[in-house]
Write a protein that binds this DNA or RNA. Structure first.
Lengths: 157, 157
DNA sequence: GCTGAAAGCCAATACGG
DNA sequence: CCGTATTGGCTTTCAGC
């Protein structure tokens, strides 16, 4: 994992469909060298996949909410997480410190759907309470954070 | 935006590097038709980009936190959002309903770095208070939510 | 809007330094 | 670990339906 790898990663985060030839031109390597490096980065689990980003509003997912989940005293967190994973509308799930066991991001089409989704969340075994924060607008999201990919590991590190 | 487009989108969300030929085989179209459809989806803003996903832990970003941001009474929210966007460690930013104006996701290398990042957040003009929730583990994240991409627009819709 | 064909480019592999 | 070479597949464009 040297500077060249970091440049390749940064480029692929920005353009996941960049060709090896393009990447080679950007970082100053041959396409085959880039191919080899990317293969190793994938095998090492650094690059976990490539995905098209879709504007949620254009596919009928205009309502987003962040939902804190308080478990019952006897709940097994892994079981709760597994149940959360089964709900399509739960896009992300974080186990957190604090009063709540999890914070999940939920995306649905309408406020009506949100109500139904929250009902499904509360019906999960081991879920005691939910606390919902409605997202009014997404200012930016999933932005490439290159703190670990530039020359230093972040401001003031 | 018909069923074929939805299948193409679902496929590209899962594999952003799928070739047009592959997509064509999956959905039952020629590569050139897929090419044309994808171009239109990109032009229409449905597909906003393609990105490699990177395991944060492997690039020195092992600490994640969700930070609620309470603005001062006189703060201009757009200015605050713009300031948040200038910080590399802020990966996502949502304007939310409730006590707080924003919830942001912060990713840094260490707890020390988190402390410094929170200091930078609080120093932003218009930020009165922050409330930080440390993420203990990411169970899943950014999962393809195909609620709007399947035949119906979600469970029970 | 889809197909099929043609030209150039790329992916993937193998091999040599 | 990197570069060159090769083969087959793919992208991209365009004519035609």
């Amino acid at each position: 994992m040297d500077q060249l790898d970091r440049k390749i990663i940064a480029e692929l985060r920005q353009n996941g469909r960049a060709t090896y030839a393009e990447l080679g031109r950007t970082v100053g390597l041959s396409a085959s060298s880039v191919h080899e490096r990317v293969g190793k980065l994938e095998a090492a689990g650094v690059i976990t996949g490539y995905h098209a980003m879709v504007d949620p509003n254009t596919v009928g997912l205009g309502v987003t909410a962040l939902v804190g989940i308080q478990p019952t005293d006897t709940a097994a967190e892994d079981d709760v997480a597994a149940s959360l994973a089964e709900l399509d509308e739960v896009e992300s799930c974080y186990a957190v410190a604090g009063n709540e066991a999890f914070v999940v991001k939920v995306r649905v089409s309408t406020v009506d759907e949100l109500e139904r989704a929250l009902g499904r969340l509360r019906r999960i075994d081991g879920v005691a309470r939910t606390q919902t924060t409605v997202v009014l607008s997404t200012r930016f999201e999933g932005r490439p954070n290159n703190a670990g990919l530039d020359s230093d590991s972040g401001p003031g590190a």
